[in-house]
Design a protein around this nucleic acid. Structure first.
Length: 432
RNA sequence: GGAGGGGUGGCAGAGCGGUUGAAUGCACCGGUCUUGAAAACCGGCAAGGUGAGAGCCUUCGAGGGUUCGAAUCCCUCCUCCUCCGCCA
């Protein structure tokens, strides 16, 4: 949620910033709404004031033993006007608040211009994509002899589900454990095991609702429950509705969780393989920091995700997202894209964002900047990033570490998690 | 699923229809005292909105209702605790 006071003071700036991300902001309409709000508020408040005064007087009269029936009668007749004014204000505010929840965050000033991912700017690369003496197989083909199944998964659950078996399942688990260990012991994050079912309010706090309900899995029979699309949602929401002392920051959380997405707008996109599933695993990093520290924190957090890819010896590039490609809650985002030999290109494996106070405002997470000082309450900044997506990372390891006969060499960093094994050995297809 | 008891300021905890936005204690901030600190004492100390300001409005888990007036009464929901049942 944007700071309404800021919007009021800088309406043109807000309109221009939102325009950069392709979002229309009607200044005239906004001014009208502000005027209406002021009028309705003033009317309701002055009526309420009158009522309060009258009631106070009645109380005093009764205590003094004076007959108050005239005053009570007068107050009774005033009640209709007050409740009408309240109703008008409530209705207006409900609508106004809903429209405010639909405004996305403002991009930082130096976020590159652009309308789509085609306009994102590469800001760095790591590693050199390997050259193959054969046409590199993709993970589907490799997986066929390693325990990656799609047909049986579809039988169970439909399209966009996959099944991992045997050593490949273990490799998947090894990736998750490896990532958690790196972030906990080297980067100072607290490991959190989170619920994957959350309430509507929780998704509203991080920005998925109300605007993106069609992207979420809604659990039937339990009206308020949704499957999380990322553990950013519960992690960032840990301190929803609380006031934190400044000296408790920064908070750094890491979680490994299942994530669920409808992929409703992705018909026909990435239908081959395990790139885009309804259910996937991800290690997620979240930080809650003091506002002045968030710019630096974004670089640190992105770096933490990069370290994972570097330890796994996976070539990647780092992209600065353009304004038009930013997510709803983000003010600035770096994507990490890992090299996939079969596609001969880089694919997103991590997205690291600074949301400024946008999410903190929505969820009412505040900080007390100076204990004991009046008016020293403000909002922290929240950041999140994948550290990294496990399914896509598994694909990347398979494709980048394949050898000529379809085995997968296990990256050194993962061997301790694989009982010391050096390879995943291709077996005859599990389909037969 | 059944029975019962709670949710009040940063924390603990009074208040159960009217000058209560809320006693008291702790924590915190300022001061006196002290070489310094502690203790003691004095003062301050919830948030949001609005206003130049005095002030005004809102908030005692959430939402609705009763009433001239609700933290206090009624209803619904959320949530925590205790006991029983069931269960990984």
């Amino acid at each position: 949620m944007l700071d309404l006071r800021f919007v009021r003071q800088n309406p043109q700036l807000v309109r221009d910033a939102l325009a950069r991300r392709g979002e229309a902001f009607d200044l005239e309409h906004f001014r009208q709404q502000e005027q209406t709000r002021k009028t309705l508020t003033e009317r309701a408040e002055s009526l309420r004031h009158e009522r309060n005064e009258t009631s106070k007087r009645i109380g005093e009269m009764k205590r003094a033993g004076v007959d108050a029936s005239d005053a009570i009668e007068k107050a009774e007749t005033a009640r209709g006007a007050l409740s009408a004014a309240n109703a008008a204000l409530d209705e207006f505010e409900r609508e106004y608040h809903t429209s405010m929840l639909g405004w996305p965050n403002l991009p930082e000033a130096d976020v590159p211009d652009g309308a789509s991912d085609a306009d994102n700017v590469e800001v760095g690369t790591f590693g050199v994509p390997r050259t193959f003496d054969w046409t590199p197989r993709d993970h589907v083909e490799l997986g066929d002899t390693l325990g990656l199944e799609f047909e049986r998964a579809s039988k169970l659950s439909g399209s966009r589900f996959a099944l991992l078996r045997g050593a490949l399942a273990r490799l998947n688990r090894a990736l998750a454990t490896f990532m958690l260990d790196v972030h906990v012991s080297e980067h100072g994050y607290e490991e959190v095991n989170v619920p994957v079912l959350v309430r509507r309010e929780t998704l509203q706090g991080t920005g998925q609702l109300p605007k993106f309900e069609h992207d979420q899995f809604h659990v039937a029979g339990d009206e308020g429950m949704f499957l999380i699309p990322t553990s950013e949602v519960p992690l960032t929401s840990l301190y929803r509705g609380e006031i934190l002392d400044l000296n408790r920051l920064p908070l750094k959380f890491v979680a490994h969780s299942l994530c669920f997405r409808r992929e409703a707008g992705a018909y026909g996109k990435d239908t081959r393989g395990m790139i885009r599933m309804h259910q996937f695993e991800k290690v997620e990093l979240v930080q809650i920091v003091a506002p002045q520290d968030s710019a630096e924190a974004l670089h640190a957090l992105t770096r933490h995700a990069e370290v994972v890819l570097e330890r796994l010896e996976l070539p990647y590039r780092k992209m600065a997202l353009c304004a038009g490609d930013l997510g709803f809650s983000a003010a600035r985002t770096f994507d990490l894209e890992v090299w996939l030999p079969s596609q001969n290109r880089y694919r997103e494996i991590s997205s690291c964002s600074n949301c400024h106070d946008f999410q903190a405002r929505r969820m009412g997470c505040r900080i007390r900047t100076e204990p004991g000082k009046k008016g020293a309450i403000s909002f922290p900044h929240t950041l999140n990033g994948s550290g990294v997506a496990i399914g896509r990372c598994l694909i990347a390891v398979m494709e980048n570490f394949q050898d000529a006969n379809g085995d997968i060499v296990i990256p050194d960093a993962l061997r301790p998690y694989m009982g010391g094994a050096e390879k995943l050995v291709a077996e005859p297809s599990t389909k037969t």
